[in-house]
Design a protein around this nucleic acid. Sequence first.
DNA 1: TTGTATGCGTTATCAC
DNA 2: GTGATAACGCATACAA
Lengths: 330, 330
Amino acid sequence: MVAAAANVSRVAVSRAFNPHASIKPEKRDRILKVAQELNYTPDMAARSMVTGRSHLVGIIVPDVSGPWESQELDAMTTALQAEGFATLLFRTRDDFSIDETLLTYMKGFNPDSVIAYAENVRPATLARVLDRAVPIYVGYPDEAEPGSEPAPLSDRLDVLQRPGIEQAIALMQGYGARSFAFLAGKTSSLATAARGSIVRRVLAERGLPPPIEIPGDYTYDTAYRATLDQFRIHGPVDAIFAANDVGAFGAIDALRTELGLRVPEDVKVVGFDDIHQAHWKSYNLTTVRLDLAERTQALLRLILGRLRNPTAPSLVETISTRLVVRGTVG
Amino acid sequence: MVAAAANVSRVAVSRAFNPHASIKPEKRDRILKVAQELNYTPDMAARSMVTGRSHLVGIIVPDVSGPWESQELDAMTTALQAEGFATLLFRTRDDFSIDETLLTYMKGFNPDSVIAYAENVRPATLARVLDRAVPIYVGYPDEAEPGSEPAPLSDRLDVLQRPGIEQAIALMQGYGARSFAFLAGKTSSLATAARGSIVRRVLAERGLPPPIEIPGDYTYDTAYRATLDQFRIHGPVDAIFAANDVGAFGAIDALRTELGLRVPEDVKVVGFDDIHQAHWKSYNLTTVRLDLAERTQALLRLILGRLRNPTAPSLVETISTRLVVRGTVG
DNA sequence: TTGTATGCGTTATCAC
DNA sequence: GTGATAACGCATACAA
């Protein structure tokens, strides 16, 4: 507040920086000018204490460097910044064990909102630890397990995974695929569970045999080895549906590099996410798209809506998926 | 502080949460227990005001979803979390124009430290805007331009890029390459400028002709098209040295997919960074490694060292590079 | 070891 | 439109 001392009053400075406050324009301009000369910036921590708004949005991800996660993080950070929020980034380990510690730690920063993914955090834990900020919970409603927790107090982004998966299977079947494999993601992941469940159901509906399950964990290396094992030990399949794009890359490389098979002629492959790398020529992957821009906007609506009306009932946004056809099926 | 009211005193709670404070162990345990039951967490904002430590480390990147950036961000976030810091993430646009605004905004959060990359932020701007936190500046000392700014007040991580580049060129020359191309990154990037300069110098030292410059911007698509243009319009080269791995991927796919050339038989390719994707079988890229763990530890030392002694003269850490040989040269 | 008083920088409330 | 004052939640200096 030295800026004030150098010139005139004290709360005037506060008003000068707050667009809604009433202050004579010329006075505001003068104060802002002095502030800039003195290199003064309002202290967000102090502001946070009295306004109850930290202008921080917490994001918890299991692996910042995962292509999908990093692309979503990029989009969210850009969008949040445009709205005056800063991204507070946390990284969780794969197991649920440190959930509580991490959430408690994060709570100390009083984020205005928290984005958590179903894969990483149990909804009950989330709801219990955070109170001020209503968390946003990304879930997969179609084909949810009967006993799944209802995510009591949180706003939700529901991702409809079925449409894209139906299109993918229809396309592969149309090109003659009869035997399918589902290359799973991490088993603890709700997303992969929902995807696998949908795949099984859609295959059944179309009169196709149930899929062979190839174990995976969303990584390239595991997908590569697991695909090798599947083909060498258990025998080939006509088509592989991967729970994520990176896994599909691993499967494709295993098929082409080590098994001498052609994609898509010998084996068809479809991924999930449509990350930037999916259009790289070496893969040119047909995949189910989770539209990033759409998703980012939906999350932003949830955040802003909750902040505007803290006592509103649970907010829900829904987005869908669709197939992006490239060169690994036709 | 309601936790205190529910039980005993008031500052006792503060001491209970501060490891250094003197308090009877049993009392601390009891307080911590009650705190947990009441779901209480110390407010970092309030703590920040009185201690002058925000436990926030600001990181500014141009593109969170870039493989290299996201991998470094992941490693840094993990390391910082282990030391009790949270990552405050900012994203800059490609041009320098919003530098000041973004930095001012960031300053409002009073980060304990700031990591900025030479590509994104002018050192002078950085030093002027931030005062409390001494920024950490990642630079490339070897082959620095004579007129480059000395980054006055900041701690530095110096990356020695020459060793890895020398090894790469030696290897390619050893396999018979005579004509070289340098696939550049963004022209405004200091890293790419330094890399190009080193490549030119090393080629000259080895009696090889100067490299052809292929324009690029670190992206796959641009590298793909630029490589196509180079070979179709200006003619082929024996070897391509790319300023980053993703650019190398684009070049490889252009060579193999559209030009019908073999890598490494017809054209040798080397990248830079050694991102996770470099070992994917479709590329299996020989590349210059920037060791991530080493780099993360060096940055952490800088941060902690500066915090321990705020008045110390500029801290400098130096890390080197080395070639990782895979399948795109031999 | 423990409690009391003070201050960190800001905004909200209430006078003027 | 403007200024004084209280309050946010915490850590520290000091006294006990």
